[in-house]
Design a protein around this nucleic acid. Structure first.
Lengths: 285, 285
DNA sequence: TCTCATATGAAAAAATATTTCATTTTTCCC
DNA sequence: GGGAAAAATGAAATATTTTTTCATATGAGA
């Protein structure tokens, strides 16, 4: 299956970034993918119950020039679909599903959340994040719950290359430590929603203390992501939220991998020694 | 379109039946097959030096409703053409790689490790693991280092559905707690190599205490994987071992997702309440 | 040369897509 | 909680594109 840029994929996985009517439009399109290209923008908007302007705007947010451009791209995509691959559909887990189906579904969701992040993630932002991290004296990761694990992962990775990194993962730790930040530190806030109370409050403290701030969340320009020095936008399907919001955590870890690798690559000469030293230790985990 | 013949074919071989300007249109289209779909009928006719009406009629003689219909069909046809794109190769990260390449590489490795696991993972084993977990009174995850994070993830997930789950993630914890296992417990050992000293020793204790054992590692039937009640075999590209063994951790988390989802699916009715209850709490992470 | 069938393009009409703008809704910040 | 700012939305205006109409041109056959 082709990862990365498909329209069908965006319709399913980028829904977080869509507005209300955008979500409706995406939903209708997913349902009627094959027939959409025969409809005029007028017909389509009427069927969805929205305005032509909104549909047109929606096409633009997906990166097309307009509706016509979108329809042509969609047609190309549909034409290119391998007919022998029965386009896997993502379904939420149902009672009594057989194990093979569960395996396929979970793997698909997790792979797609990586693929989607790859498509959405802005390399400019990654570069800025790398600069901030390299310039910082200390690195602090803030995350609660599932994001707490991601914070710990970040700490582990950066410690391996001899950076001073800390993961703060419970509200007590976070409250206590946010105020010790200073302008030489970089604070990395992990919150899929971008609205976790403790994280928002820690973020505000970090701003006050003039630390550099990086936010990793599903939103590019909302909430704390807007005020941060760097906002890393990740993405994940909503389908399995009931089953534990699995995809978002994989997407975040993937993003940590990227930043870590980019930092390691930029400082390769100094870093390689540390990696070699810790390599023996780590290969037995 | 009629007879399943391709548009390109018609443009080349049906020229006999075309009128004078029809031949010109066909000729232009053959030459510029890829860019035609971006042109409006106005632009196209101007370039060919004919009128819009003639182009429209031409589309109709080919069996389409009109120009728009033709363009969409053409786009589909172009999309379906084999685009033997060179399969992405992953290379280990080199010093000074540009960020876009790093993003692509890291995402590829992580996706690949999920894809590989999907291919390798044996659904029989997953089913057995699910049975053991469902039958157990307590669940213990053992993991050190990167695998420790996976253990914590397992604990978090299973606690959400009201299972008694613990993650033991440092040698001290592990040594102290392995001996409290009893035959009603299931012990899940996470070790990519399958040879981590502490994990092996805890595994032996677990065996002695007659607890059920599940091992997640890259080996199916070697070391502790051989003696375990269930061995879950995961896989990951080793290329980036130097950069932090990233893929293996994603593969393990993915595997935890699978087991969790399978358990949740099997006990859907009881579990659903817990998931609903914790959903509000979790959605803000 | 005339007739008729067909081909053609200009222009009108229709359909379609895009932009603008006022209104509503949401979000943000005290 | 409440007011300011920003974002989302749809109605309508505008622009663009497609389709149809119609008048004319062309050319073959008598």
């Amino acid at each position: 299956m082709a990862f990365g840029t498909s329209i069908e994929h965006s319709l399913t996985f980028s829904t977080e970034t869509f507005s209300n009517s955008g979500k409706q439009i995406a939903a209708y399109m997913r349902e009627h993918l094959d027939s959409v290209s025969t409809l005029s923008i007028q017909e389509l908007s009427a069927r969805i119950g929205t305005s032509e302007a909104t549909v047109n705007r929606f096409c633009k947010t997906l990166g097309f020039k307009g509706y016509r451009d979108f329809i042509i791209a969609l047609s190309k995509e549909l034409g290119s679909r391998k007919t022998d691959e029965p386009a896997l559909k993502y379904a939420d887990i149902k009672p009594g599903d057989n194990v093979r189906k569960i395996i396929d579904n979970v793997c698909l969701v997790n792979m797609q959340s990586i693929a989607d992040t790859k498509a959405i993630l802005d390399s400019q932002s990654v570069e800025s994040a790398v600069s901030l991290i390299r310039a910082a004296e200390r690195i602090f990761f803030f995350g609660i719950g599932a994001s707490g694990l991601v914070a710990l992962d970040g700490q582990q990775k950066f410690m391996r290359i001899n950076k001073k990194a800390w993961a703060l993962t419970d509200s007590h730790e976070i409250r206590q430590n946010a105020s010790i930040l200073c302008e030489k530190d970089v604070a990395i806030f992990l919150s899929y929603s971008g609205t976790t109370k403790e994280i928002v409050s820690a973020f505000n403290t970090a701003m006050k203390m003039k630390a550099s701030t990086i936010v990793m969340s599903k939103l590019r320009k909302k909430g704390i992501a807007k005020s941060a020095d760097v906002s890393l936008c990740i993405s994940s399907p909503e389908l399995t939220i009931r089953s534990g919001a699995m995809g978002s955590r994989i997407a975040m870890l993937n993003c940590i991998d990227i930043i870590f690798t980019a930092v390691a690559s930029a400082e390769y000469d100094t870093v390689r020694n540390y990696l070699d030293l810790t390599h023996d230790a780590i290969q037995h985990f």
